[in-house]
Design a protein around this nucleic acid. Structure first.
Lengths: 336, 336
DNA sequence: GTGAAAGCGCTAACAG
DNA sequence: CTGTTAGCGCTTTCAC
């Protein structure tokens, strides 16, 4: 592999001239610049990011840690961040925590060891897991997205989860449903608690008594929803509507409902948080609350860049507005 | 950020001892090792991968370039590779080519500049795009997955696409369908040509005359399938079954069918290549041909590691067996 | 406008 | 078994 020295020799200039040319410094004559570029071309020279990074004390790498890429929410987030990063001249080092805080801590260390300029983290844990200050160690800047509590002490970007759940459940209530089951996330996580709180608030506003037997939990994964949904189907009187806290569990619920011969929306109305490309193609098309993923991603990335540029202002929480997308999976309560 | 020197001073040993301890060399007494580890702990020391990589001439980074993360096939591939890489001590630098060969070439350069040990590439182009030897330049090893032609001259891992299409179409034929429309990929790509060839072969085996008006194309993306599907719906006599070349276009097809009030499988049988988590949850559950993604990913990664370990054997093509997953989107031809 | 040289943090060859 | 040291490729200060 050609080095800068090779290019300098080939172009008959000093190594400084090559470096300055490549960095776009103005202190190089057009003539030399031309010669350097030609040599770069001829030798197929590629600047060594490790050497550069070592010297600069930082790299053009951005860490991105999600808990599960196969979740369409994170998939789209990865896509968006990747795009923003590319446009800003950064590359993305991807980490998957698999919902495990320990693994996540490893990944954070990894990002640091690679001298990532910053990291965008979708936290796998609850507030308590970050009390040790693992998010502010070293020089690497971190912003959190999604399961982001202000208690983390770093810039946080998330859906207004409480309002999102409220929106979904209020929609169900407006359709006349009163026995509304919920497939919530694990209470340990901030995002789950917020969504559950939104569910409670919506019920309270309509003076609907919350029924503990209608509450189920899952870890935001597909399989988690099977058992929970099945149990909810067994309670008597059976709920007439289900609020599901995320997309993966929604799939689990829809599969279970199909298996059990429960027709949606005739026998059961279903509404969830998270839109995804397949939602409109379902039979029936799924009514969901959408998150503005691209907007959240851009805001988070933007903030990270500001931090890298030296902004030392206080960390802030940014909440994004949910949007109810009414399709066909919720019907009016049939009475009874 | 603490350096090795700091750790050495703190532990009262030489810098070599620290390096050797961290690298797991046997040449360090248990006593010193212990002291070093304690200092590492105390200082929160993290080895600088850039310095290490610079010295070693390579990094623990693996490039992974896909054309579209939001395609569930690639999403799962990313998940699998990520996992394998992690277990082998590598980190994944993710690149998204967005189906653009130029961008892909940029990404390849990027991977090289970051001294990636190797790169797993899902090619966005056809064979012609790689004639310039861009896959074998420099020291970085490359293996290709998915749209992988042996003509690329590197280790290739792909579904037996011809057989996969054949499997799907033969299933439709066995159900009595004779007018089978196809939503194929762009002919430019190896994978599209193979799948289309499989479609033709299946028809030929049953002496079904291929009908050019029943052939549509798309770039494996959702939107591409809308117009194509709509056009196919307009041909007369209308096809009674559709073979769709990938998952994203399948979604597009299902949405179009729903919009047009075409009932599946009553009015139209649909079968495609690529399984995905939502396929069984659809109404009707989708009949598809599944790719062994995890197997392909592991084989490709494994091979890459062998290459990194110095294997200089000839590049080979590895084809993986497709599996027909019969669900409910294909029904017997109703006659007429 | 250009070149020489120091040094980023680490590894490994060599010397003790 | 441990320490010293050269140098990976690059950026940048300082001298010309």
């Amino acid at each position: 592999m050609a080095t800068m020295k090779d290019v300098a020799r080939d172009a008959g200039v000093s190594i400084y001239t090559v470096s300055a040319t490549l960095s776009g410094s103005a202190n190089v004559s057009a003539d030399l610049r031309e010669r350097v570029n030609r040599s770069v071309e001829r030798l197929g020279y590629e600047r060594n990011s490790m050497a550069r990074g070592l010297k600069q004390g930082t790299s053009s790498l951005i860490g991105l840690i999600v808990s599960d890429v196969t979740n369409p929410f994170f998939t789209e987030l990865v896509e968006c961040i990747q795009n923003d990063a590319r446009n800003a001249g950064y590359s993305v080092l991807l980490g998957i925590s698999d919902h495990d805080v320990e693994r996540e801590a490893d990944l954070l260390r990894l990002m640091r060891s690679h001298q990532a300029a910053g990291t965008i983290l979708c936290p796998a844990g609850g507030e308590d897991d970050y009390r040790d200050g693992r998010l502010s160690r070293g020089r690497m800047r971190i912003v959190v997205v999604d399961n982001a509590s202000p208690a983390l002490g770093v810039d946080a970007f998330a859906l207004d989860n409480r309002r999102a759940a409220d929106l979904a459940v209020s929609h169900l209530l407006a359709l006349g449903h009163r026995r509304i089951g919920v497939v919530a996330g694990i209470p340990h996580q901030h995002v789950s608690r917020e969504r559950f709180a939104g569910y409670r608030e919506a019920l309270a506003r309509q003076d609907v008594e919350p029924a503990p037997e209608l509450v189920g939990h899952g870890n935001f994964r597909l399989e988690d929803a099977f058992a929970t949904c099945r149990r909810l189907l067994g309670v008597s009187p059976r709920p007439t509507a289900l609020f599901v806290a995320n997309n993966l569990m929604l799939i689990g619920v829809m599969r279970t409902l199909a298996d059990e011969g429960v027709s949606v929306p005739r026998d059961m109305s279903v509404c969830s948080i998270d839109d995804f490309p397949w939602a409109p193609a379902f039979q029936p098309a799924l009514t969901v609350v959408r998150q503005p993923i691209a907007g959240m991603a851009s805001a988070a990335f933007q903030r990270l860049v500001e931090r890298l540029d030296g902004d030392e202002g206080d960390a802030a929480e940014h909440l994004f507005a949910p949007e109810l997308v009414v399709r066909r999976s919720c019907a009016a309560f049939a009475g009874g």
